[in-house]
Nucleic acid binder design. Structure first.
Lengths: 248, 248
DNA sequence: AATTTTGGTTGACGTGGATCAACGGAGTAC
DNA sequence: GTACTCCGTTGATCCACGTCAACCAAAATT
């Protein structure tokens, strides 16, 4: 049974507290003073747990809140009338999700948990109120939105101008960099998404993604086994992007 | 000689006034009360004229302002180290440009006028100040940013999941819709960009764009002559997208 | 433990769009 | 008016990636 994406308070919910959270430098409070962060605690409502494969929200849902991911992974995707899907992003701990809803007050994409996850629910009207009072919050929120725009432009570059292997290399480097920022290994990580989902994000078919993984392994750039990836030559991956792979 | 993209006051500049402007319902003031709009006049600084092919700003420029297009057309594009370019958008009258700069306080793309154009310069620090005071401004500004994110997701769908002719059809329908919103003909318009620029935006080569134009003409969907386009069967174009063109 | 389902890999083959090339017309500069 | 440059069109050919298919491993279900 699909779960409606509103803001339910269940027994499992705990009151969140930004001031107690260790994601500070990744999340909304970044750059704010301690006093300001304490005031954030009034803003951030309940936490909400989302099980693997469940929706955080669906396209068409009324927009009420944005979400800060505390634990876990999500994907967002848009669907065309004829059923074609396009993954528009993979979001991890410390990232904000739901910004698409502001423009029309209705979510324009679907957000699905890739593993059991937990988000902080940030009521949007409260966020607007509070960011009129707290300059640091306002500024950081604007940065978060702008960052999303810049990221999207990067994806356009990827989809519009790069070949299959370059796209995958860019994808892996991006993941690596995001893991690093969270204190995890830059070289070794576990993919939360399937080849098909990666393919959708990168504008490729799953077979092509799989072949590119195998090729990278043959070339000694990475070692892959299913969802486990170890980057063995990060410079090699970088070069692959800079020197538009052997177009003879 | 390239012009540095700062905020120069030249003899040609006139003080702008949102309250006197006829772009209200397309631009930042949308949804604001008359009193609020009057206060906007303190926000919007000089106008600035940009000649065809000149930069409004460049990637790497320090971010100081966003711009509302009063007259004309722009393209934004990002450039990879190896020189590959990707057009990330075409912006017309009433649209905001420069939002990419907020995240890092440095512009991340280039904005170039496609024809002689004029923008209103909106100092970003003043915008933040004022939108802490005027709720309607804050809300509208957030909507503008969110709309950009949603638009970008649409482009990802286009680049990642659609075939050449579908992409061009979607592009023409999008232009048509934006012209309509400005009171121009939905069916007949003048393209401000070259086949090459359209191709870059759509992730196609200029030859493919040209062939798709010719195909649409053969099929009686449009008539094209150089940059002049007349849509003769708008429903036909829509169908083309909904029914993933004959993949036999 | 047996069975089913889902996800990933690999090979053979087909094709949409890229590439290469030639040409002609529009716009611009002199 | 003439020359030049830029832009768009069209044809011939090529190739990167999609499609189709078989198979296997891992995970979920019984």
């Amino acid at each position: 049974m699909p779960i409606k994406a509103t803001v339910p308070i269940t027994a499992a919910d705990i009151k969140s507290a930004c001031s107690q959270c260790n994601l500070l430098e990744l999340c909304l409070p970044f750059g704010m003073t301690e006093t300001e962060i304490n005031r954030l605690d009034e803003l951030v409502g309940a936490r909400r747990k989302i099980k693997r494969q469940q929706h955080l929200y669906r396209a068409g849902d009324p927009f009420e809140a944005i979400y800060a991911i505390r634990i876990g992974w999500f994907k967002t995707h848009v669907v065309l009338e004829d059923g074609r899907e396009q993954v528009t992003g993979f979001q991890m701990t410390g990232e904000m999700i739901g910004l698409d809803g502001i423009s029309t007050e209705t979510h324009s994409c679907n957000a699905i948990a890739l593993e059991d996850s937990e988000v902080c629910v940030i009521a949007y009207n409260r966020l607007e109120e509070l960011s009129r009072e707290i300059e640091g919050l306002q500024h950081q929120f604007h940065k978060v939105m702008s960052r999303e725009i810049v990221r999207d432009h990067g994806v356009m570059m990827l989809l519009g101008s790069m070949r299959a292997e370059e796209r995958l290399a860019a994808f892996l480097l991006n993941l690596s960099q995001r893991f690093t920022a969270r204190g995890f290994s830059a070289a070794e990580f576990h993919l939360r998404m399937t080849r098909d989902e990666i393919g959708s994000y990168l504008g490729l078919k799953l077979e092509t993604v799989s072949r590119a993984f195998s090729k990278f392994q043959e070339d000694g750039l990475i070692s892959v086994q299913q969802k486990h990836v170890r980057i063995t030559d990060i410079e090699g991956l970088r070069k692959l992007i800079q020197h538009p792979a052997a177009m003879r």
